[in-house]
Write a protein that binds this DNA or RNA. Structure first.
Lengths: 151, 151
DNA sequence: GTAGAATCGACAACGTGGTTGTCGAAACAG
DNA sequence: CTGTTTCGACAACCACGTTGTCGATTCTAC
C-alpha cells in the first residue's frame, strides 16, 4: 500500500521536470529569460492579441497583475502594446515575432519531451497517464491559472 | 498523437486538485489557515525539531526565507521557538501539538484522496502512474523545494 | 588557550507576482 | 444626455523569495 502523500509529490515532480527541461532547452534556443509565468501569459494573449483585462480573466488573476506581467514581457521584447483603433480605452497586446517564436519553440520542445517519455515508458503508459488524469481532474477545468496559485 | 503541451498541464492539474482538496478538507477539520507552503515547512521541521537554517537547507531556500515562513507558522501557533541548550546561537524549532495534528491529518487525508483515485481509476492504474513518474523524474530527487519554485 | 574561520539568527533592502482601492477617460445603455 | 460599466494606470500593500551585513557563538587549528 503506497503512502498517499507520494502521489502529489510525484505529479509535481513530473510537472516540474517537464517545465525545467522546457526552459533549459528554450534558453539553449535563444530564449534564456522566458520564465514559466511568461509562457502562460503569452499563451493567454495568443497570436490574435488581447487586452490586459482579457489576459487577466483568462489567467484567473486581476487585470493589475496581468498588466505587471505584460510590462515585463514588453520590456523583454516579447509583447507590444498598440492602441486599439476600435476602443480608445484599450491597448491591444500583440506578440512580437520573438514572442511568437518562443511559443512555437515551446510547443515543439513539449512534443520532444513527451516523445522522450514515450521512449522511456512506452506510448501506452504515457497515454494511460494522460487519460487517467483527464478522468480524475474535475471536469474540463484546465489550469490556465497556474500563476498565482500558491495562495 | 497527443499534443505535448497537455502532459505538463495534466500533471499540474492532478497535483493541484490533490492539494486543493487536501486544504479544503484540512480547513473542515480545524486547520483553515494552513497554506501549501506551510505543510512543506512543517514537514521539514519534523517531529524531532530543527533549526531555521536546517529547514532552509531541506527546503532548498535561504535561511532568511525559511525564517520568515517560520514566523508565520509561529504566529499561527503551529511552531514554537525554544532556545537550544546545546548551542546559544540556535533557536530550536518545534512543532506544537497543533502542528503535529495538522501533519497527521494531512497524511490521513492524502491516503483518503489516493483511495478515491483508486476507486475512480483502479488500483493498477494509480500504481502505474506512480511507478511511471518515479521512473521519469530524475533520480531520487524529491521536490522538497516546492516553495519558491517559479523563479 | 587563543586567534581565525564558520555558522546562527536577525535585520534591511530589494525583486517578483499577487491583491485591493481609486481614478480619469471612453464606451455603452436607458 | 445621463448614469453605469469597462479600460488602463497608479498607489499601497502582502507573501515569498533573494543578497548582503552584522553581532554573537561555536568550531578548528596552531
Amino acid at each position: 500500500m503506497a503512502e498517499g502523500y507520494e502521489l502529489p509529490l510525484l505529479l509535481f515532480a513530473g510537472f516540474r521536470t517537464l517545465i525545467d527541461d522546457l526552459h533549459a532547452e528554450l534558453a539553449r534556443r535563444g530564449h534564456p529569460d522566458v520564465r514559466p509565468a511568461y509562457g502562460f501569459a503569452m499563451q493567454a494573449i495568443g497570436v490574435r492579441g488581447a487586452s490586459a483585462s482579457e489576459v487577466g480573466r483568462r489567467l484567473g488573476v486581476s487585470k493589475q497583475a496581468a498588466g505587471k506581467t505584460v510590462d515585463r514581457l514588453e520590456a523583454l521584447g516579447y509583447v507590444e502594446r498598440v492602441d486599439d483603433p476600435a476602443d480608445a480605452r484599450r491597448k491591444l497586446l500583440r506578440l512580437t515575432p520573438r514572442g511568437i517564436d518562443s511559443l512555437a519553440q515551446s510547443a515543439e520542445i513539449f512534443d520532444d519531451l513527451r516523445a522522450r517519455w514515450v521512449t522511456e515508458l512506452g506510448a501506452d503508459r504515457v497515454e494511460l497517464i494522460e487519460s487517467s488524469l483527464r478522468t480524475v481532474v474535475s471536469g474540463p477545468t484546465f489550469p490556465v491559472d497556474v500563476p498565482g496559485w500558491f495562495s
